[in-house]
């Protein structure tokens, strides 16, 4: 099953490489990864999506917790949560396709953020499934370049991941 694990870790050089190294070293897979400092500049938040059965996920969280740089972590998929990813896509926009792209973007609540005579740059946010669907819809028109941030997430309700 796919899991979203969010990690608060020391904002220190080397911390990220320890987390990523752990996945490589123990043969765990990384689907997406994103990381940035939080409101507390000494802490970074890293979110990783990974696939594994319960036993593997248990090992992943235990080994992550063991890293000295990891302060706290949560497996967001264990409860209700909000999942978002941002994607920037360059698609061909010539002739009739120009309107078609615009219409599809509207349906997906995506925005066209840059325009040239031959292409549109579209920005879209949502969960990974929505982004995949948009790419599929654009495939016939011609997708030229894709930049995705990887999944970020947060728990629904009063639960807070903090120190």
């Amino acid at each position: 099953m796919r899991h979203i694990i969010s990690i608060l870790m020391e904002n220190e050089p080397g911390a990220l490489s320890r987390v990523v190294g752990l996945f490589a070293q123990r043969n765990y897979n990384i689907e997406t990864l994103n990381v940035a400092p939080t409101d507390d500049p000494t802490l970074s938040r890293l979110t990783v999506t990974t696939i594994g059965d319960d036993r593997v996920i248990e090992q992943i969280t235990k080994h992550l917790n063991k890293l000295i740089d990891v302060v706290k972590l949560v497996d967001l998929t264990e409860g209700n949560h909000i999942e978002r990813e941002l994607m920037l896509v360059k698609v061909k926009a010539l002739g009739a396709a120009r309107d078609e792209v615009k219409r599809t973007a509207d349906i997906f609540r995506a925005q066209i953020v840059d325009v040239t005579p031959s292409l549109y740059t579209v920005q879209i946010t949502g969960d990974a499934g929505k982004l995949d669907a948009f790419l599929q819809a654009m495939a016939p028109v011609g997708v030229l370049e894709v930049a995705r941030t990887g999944v970020s997430g947060i728990a629904r309700g009063d639960k807070v991941l903090s120190l």
């Binding site: 050089p13 080397g14 490489s17 320890r18 190294g21 070293q25 000295i68």
Partner: peptide, 14 residues
């Protein structure tokens, strides 16, 4: 050496 030893240390510092 921090990189070389990363998977075989409990922790490391520079």
């Amino acid at each position: 050496i921090i990189g070389v030893t990363r998977p075989i240390v409990k922790h490391s510092f520079s």
